[in-house]
Design a binder for these strands. Sequence first.
DNA 1: CCTCCTGATGTCAGCAACTGACATAGCCGT
DNA 2: ACGGCTATGTCAGTTGCTGACATCAGGAGG
Lengths: 192, 192
Amino acid sequence: MELFQDRGYVETTVQEIAARAGLTERTFFRYFADKREVLFSGSKELQKSIIARIESAAREAGPLDVVVGALEAAGAELQDQRGLSFVRARYALVTQHAEIQERELIKLAALAVGVTRALHARGVAEPAASLAAEAGMAVFKIGFERWVNERKPRDFAAHIREAAVALKALTAGNKVHARQTLSRPVKKSISR
Amino acid sequence: MELFQDRGYVETTVQEIAARAGLTERTFFRYFADKREVLFSGSKELQKSIIARIESAAREAGPLDVVVGALEAAGAELQDQRGLSFVRARYALVTQHAEIQERELIKLAALAVGVTRALHARGVAEPAASLAAEAGMAVFKIGFERWVNERKPRDFAAHIREAAVALKALTAGNKVHARQTLSRPVKKSISR
DNA sequence: CCTCCTGATGTCAGCAACTGACATAGCCGT
DNA sequence: ACGGCTATGTCAGTTGCTGACATCAGGAGG
């Protein structure tokens, strides 16, 4: 983080990072798959924590509530462990470099897969499990952004909760039959 | 695609791709930012098409319906233009190589940003716009996967519609923060 | 017809990310 | 002391990607 903030992400070479740690470039790549991975050290543990919370959630709770609840808890964990200022510095890096953002997104996608599996284990059927997982990621993402960009910092968990409420309002507010009919020219069918 | 399928993605070198096109490696990089981008040729147009449909959607329609409607139409477009077999071949590449999947995910994130902006232009306020966009992406993603993995191919648009319905059912049944009380018996329904 | 300009392409050199193969050093149990 | 295991170093090589400069074809205008 020091090097990235001083010299910039692209300018910082892996060799420099390794040297700062008193190691060699080759050794760096034995611990991190690539340069970006060094920014995702805690992610595996965070995912595990979330999955564990889903597994141990109350039986009666609905899938989306279970997911959102787990994310709230994990969010609080993150807030406590790393602190807002660190998270903000890292967030700046992520937003400034598409390269890093890509990694962040695939981590989130992997989390969604894990969450989906955990929901399956609870007996949630299929489109519901994936949708709850993905919707949870959306809620997390938006809650996160609002938390980080806020001038007067509030609780991360509160933001997640708010986003979840907003999502429910959104989907509730629209009737299924309010869908517009779209004029799609009929072309050849799929065939094959 | 030919080269990637024959020799594999990683084994295929940019030089080979360029040579196959009768060009030089340097010229390749003048048209594509990097090796992966060659797999995302139509994405800009697709995004434009989606945004345009959102802008021209009926005024009374709710945000989520607008987004889902636009995605259905774009999905139909994709299905007609590229064809299921091409989409499947490309999908196989994406799932097999995290590198490519990362790019796919960031394209989707960029689409979400565009959709959010288009919703703002329609007067949708803030957590709602982002959430509708992200929820739309979730619906698209899941609809897409179900479409592509299906043995007997049906309409892409139909899958998207089904996913949207499932999402509404999901969010309708549950209250956020079901602390102690559970509002009503959990129905895991939908699907199939 | 000649000239100049422009845009597309080629050539070349170079850096940094990453990898495989092999060597070395330190620790640990026997 | 020995032998093995693990972490690290060394080295060479490939590939993605970039900047600088050269070349070449076609069109506009004299």
